[in-house]
Design a protein around this nucleic acid. Structure first.
Lengths: 182, 182
DNA sequence: GTAAATCATGTCAATAGTTACATGTTATAT
DNA sequence: ATATAACATGTAACTATTGACATGATTTAC
């Protein structure tokens, strides 16, 4: 389906960006909440988009001699991106989740071991939720206006927080279910 | 990380099973809520587990001549599986979600197009939630006892329903946010 | 009876994604 | 000054996953 292609086109369509900054977006910024790619996947894909004439770049010299490539979308690239954006796809496979896999097989663990797992997972998701909430309060005081890129940022960040809330609630229900069985 | 390996070992450890039934588990049954693999990935992995002596199989003749392989776990396989099960792994990357990607780029759509997307997505997730809830009410009247495989089934099914609830709630919040901007 | 759906097991080519290798620059903290 | 972190861009080998190809048996619905 080449989804990475459209993730890159969209980012470049938002504003000209380097491969390095695209990778950062996937690894640490808001996009990391719903997409991921290593730089070793990003650079070859950028080259491919260049070949397809969906993007172009301008060489920038940073400081004395360090080169960076600032990518810009072409009209053809923008057209393909918008066409993809409007498509209505079927749901697709449910995302993989190693912790749910372990939970599915929890009958092979003692109650104590499973409770330890649940607490550890709870800690990790609480921490993640904390990070997300601090991003949220730092960047948005009100709901951004629809049509600005801030609206997209806000919507997916909210979705990420709600996802963490739900995961945390599930872990607590599991803890409850096992603790009432001792 | 070879997670598929452990997913297969766990299933085979629950009770002897064929490659075909493992594939069904990934495609239509409870496991589909947190893991997935096509039969073209399952059969070669089973062969590999055989080579590693973690499983063995018995040939069964169904009807007149149709052969099927019923896989059983070996003591070595069970030991490796339980060792994996007790491991505490870091959270890992957030799952990819094409709809969130589209939402992130929603400023490239009209409000009407985005609302259409949201409604379509809402329909799909409501349908999915309905399926999950009917499985839940069909199979479990009370919380199954911890230690039975039904407990694992119940816990992940509950998690899947909660995940759908949260996704639906997020979609409604998005709808609300855009509709108050017209 | 026969067509369609499901059962049952595999391979192969291609795409997607990860890990490790490889190199050099610039800014920041001590 | 100098070490460390961050900036910046790539390639290569490997693992994971998908989609298409391939084949045949058995059950179920009409």
């Amino acid at each position: 389906m080449r989804t990475l292609k459209y993730a890159l086109l969209g980012l470049i369509d938002r504003e000209p960006i380097t491969g390095y900054d695209i990778s950062k977006e996937f690894e640490k910024r808001i996009m990391a909440n719903f997409w991921h790619a290593k730089h070793s996947q990003v650079y070859p894909e950028l080259k491919r988009l260049l070949d397809e004439e969906l993007i172009s770049f301008e060489l920038i010299i940073q400081g004395e001699k360090m080169e960076k490539k600032l990518y810009t979308i072409t009209p053809k690239g923008h057209a393909e991106f918008v066409a993809w954006l409007l498509q209505d796809e079927p749901l697709g496979i449910t995302p993989k989740d190693v912790f749910r896999l372990r939970t599915f097989f929890s009958d092979f663990m003692s109650v104590a071991d499973f409770e330890k797992h649940l607490h550890s997972q709870l800690d990790k998701h609480n921490l993640k939720k904390g990070y997300l909430e601090s991003s949220m309060s730092n960047y948005y005081e009100a709901v951004p206006k629809y049509g600005s890129k801030e609206f997209g940022d806000y919507a997916v960040l909210l979705g990420a927080i709600m996802r963490e809330d739900s995961y945390i609630a599930w872990l607590k229900v599991c803890l409850d279910a096992v603790s009432h069985q001792d």
